[in-house]
Design a protein around this nucleic acid. Structure first.
Lengths: 202, 202
DNA sequence: GTTTGCATGTAAACCGTTACATGATTGG
DNA sequence: CCAATCATGTAACGGTTTACATGCAAAC
């Protein structure tokens, strides 16, 4: 469909490329979190669950391995913090190179990519089943959406109004939150409408 | 969490399990398309671009390899259709086993999975850059959304009103289309609102 | 005394993207 | 002559998920 300028791809002269060539959004998320404060892998996982889970998430296994590769590339450094009563923590912080890489990512445009939506994809094919089966999917989706909206409300109450010394960060986070919430609400409204549409025929 | 019946996991004697255990939405999409009519890999690619691209897409390489594994597992069969003037086509059709697998997928609930949204993720971190950079991202997103909406309109005009002998299929496809369109419109509205919000400060 | 929370990881399988490869025909 | 359409694939890499593995402390 759109077919404009695929190749603005000159050979860049400098091959300092400890290549970080592809996408790896997760790497940059971790750098971005560490830009706010030093954290352990465990902390990062909690940051996902608290505030990021709606837009992205990752399992522990991916987080820990990614931290390791970031360290190998010199984008983060780490030190062990010894604790009694609890397991020791390995705390990571950004290096200047890491900060630079993060800034570069922030200023780059988001590369386009096809969306993948398992729910809509299945619904697309539901003409090949019974309306009852379709209704089951829609109702399950409705429930999932309500749970997600409730989670967002909860996270807002729990973590949203804490004082911060970086109001700009919070401002964008709230902006994104509102954005996502509006989409979820439309999603919910459309699911309800679809249910009504199908029920009307039974 | 669950720690009860791990031991239901004895070596199963029958290794008919040509296991199709994971997710692979693409496999089922292909089965679903073939359920409507027999098609070649090329046709499947076109079906994606015409009507499915908004919810899912795949490159040729993945399509052709997936067709091969589906054939190995006996879910589809194929025959070569010879053509003059053009390359021959290998046309695939569902086997009864394939139809059964597709039906099973349709009746299963959609397994939950974390969403990943590169755009919102980047916006989430935009408090660490200039508002100008954030505006650039938002404006690029706006343009992408407009293009996508235009594509959907175009696809509707081009392929949407053709007569069909399976009105139920089309009905669900229209439902999903409306659904997606509403979400894109909310997306667009929120992007515009975010742009206004940031501009108000400059 | 069992579950939850803290804390860190490894290995393998699986899914998706990018790059590459080929070759005839039709239309501008 | 160049681009697009038709048509089919292979190879390599990279990113994600799932399963497995460990172990102490506090709380119920």
């Amino acid at each position: 469909m759109s077919n404009k300028l695929d190749s603005a791809r000159q050979l860049s002269v400098d091959d300092q490329d400890e290549k970080m060539p592809t996408r790896n959004t997760l790497r940059y998320i971790i750098l971005g979190l560490l830009a706010a404060h030093p954290m352990s892998g465990y902390d990062i996982k909690r940051a996902f669950d608290r505030s990021l889970a709606t837009y992205w998430n990752a399992g522990n296994s991916q987080i820990y391995t990614t931290l390791k590769t970031l360290a190998e590339r010199g984008l983060v450094s780490s030190e062990v913090v010894y604790q009694e009563d609890r397991p020791n923590r390995r705390v990571y912080r950004l290096t200047p190179a890491g900060r630079a890489a993060f800034d570069a990512w922030l200023s780059e445009p988001v590369p386009p990519r096809f969306t993948k939506d398992e729910f809509l994809t299945k619904l697309f094919f539901c003409g090949q089943t019974s309306d009852e089966a379709a209704l089951r999917h829609l109702e399950a989706h409705l429930e999932a959406l309500r749970a997600q909206l409730a989670d967002m409300e909860w996270a807002l109450r729990e973590y949203g109004d804490r004082p911060t010394r970086r109001p700009r960060l919070l401002e964008y986070q709230m902006l994104v939150r509102d954005y996502k919430q509006a989409i979820l609400q439309t999603d919910l409204a459309m699911t309800e409408q679809a249910i009504a549409r199908i029920r009307a025929r039974l």
